[in-house]
């Protein structure tokens, strides 16, 4: 399988402080790649390098290359707005806009001008909400304020909002850390379904979650990628002592 994203010797700095050290990895198309590691190990920073969200933080610097379908997303002249449409992101805390449910999902198609006319927009909204299995719960209250939904519903809404613009890759930054276990299972089911259409990269500090949902797992430690491989291998036959210690709970 060809890599959807290839990262070459990526280093990242917050001012003088180096947060990522020479990271290289391949992210396969239509697979779920989980990035695990203790807090502060750089996995979220790495994730945010993939859609250039770190550009919004002043004083940061990056070395190396991130190739999306072979194109360096940090090359001069790259359309960052288009990149972020192709590489969507779901955040740690559900962050729907303080607007109606409909407007939340319609936001992307509207700003990107993807739909012609109201009918098409309504179709996209319905399809996106169905994809995250939220449609039946909200179809009668689309005008309701999104903030009145439960946290789990809000997070599904955020996922619906992302897939409404039909991205190629979805980055998820600890998408379940604010949610209870049952809702978390629902989101994991959702991820497995979305995997048929999208390339998913998920950052999680929950190793069971990584083991349950992902096809590939990368283990980060102090800004370095210690080990990366098929999830089964990483969890059952880790190549590195550090990985084994972390997974078995002796380190981290």
């Amino acid at each position: 399988m060809r890599p959807k994203i290839r990262v070459d010797h990526l280093s990242f700095y917050y001012g003088d402080k180096q947060a990522l050290f020479d990271i290289s990895m391949e992210i396969r198309e239509r697979q779920i790649t989980a990035l695990i590691g203790p807090s502060g190990c750089g996995k979220s920073t790495f994730l945010r390098c993939l859609n250039r969200m770190n550009d919004t933080i002043p004083g940061t610097r990056l070395e190396g290359r991130v190739l999306l379908d072979g194109q360096d997303v940090y090359a001069p002249g790259t359309d960052v707005v288009d990149l972020r449409r192709r590489v969507g992101m779901v955040f740690q805390r559900p962050n729907p806009f303080p607007q109606s449910i409909f407007d939340n999902v319609a936001f992307g198609p509207r700003v990107l001008g993807l739909c012609r006319g109201r009918d098409e927009l309504e179709e996209v909204v319905e399809r996106s909400l169905r994809d995250v299995r939220l449609w039946d719960e909200v179809k009668d209250n689309l005008k309701q304020d999104a903030l009145s939904l439960s946290l789990g519903q809000q997070q599904r809404l955020c996922i619906a909002r992302v897939i409404a613009v039909q991205p190629e890759v979805i980055l998820m930054d600890e998408p379940c850390s604010a949610l209870d276990p049952i809702v978390t299972l629902g989101i994991e089911e959702l991820m497995k379904r979305l995997r048929e259409q999208y390339t998913i990269v998920i950052v999680t500090h929950n190793m069971q979650q990584a083991a349950r949902v992902s096809d590939w797992t990368g283990f980060f430690w102090l800004g370095r990628l210690v080990e990366m491989g098929p999830t089964g291998d990483v969890f059952t036959r880790p190549q590195q002592k550090l990985t084994e210690d972390y997974i078995t709970g002796r380190a981290g």
């Binding site: 192709r86 969507g88 962050n95 936001f107 992307g108 700003v111 955020c158």
Partner: peptide
Amino acid sequence: SYRDAGLAMGATQWQTIWRV
């Protein structure tokens, strides 16, 4: 987080300001 969400959707900075 609202600004991040807007930008991560592929909205421009101006669209994020104006619509979010």
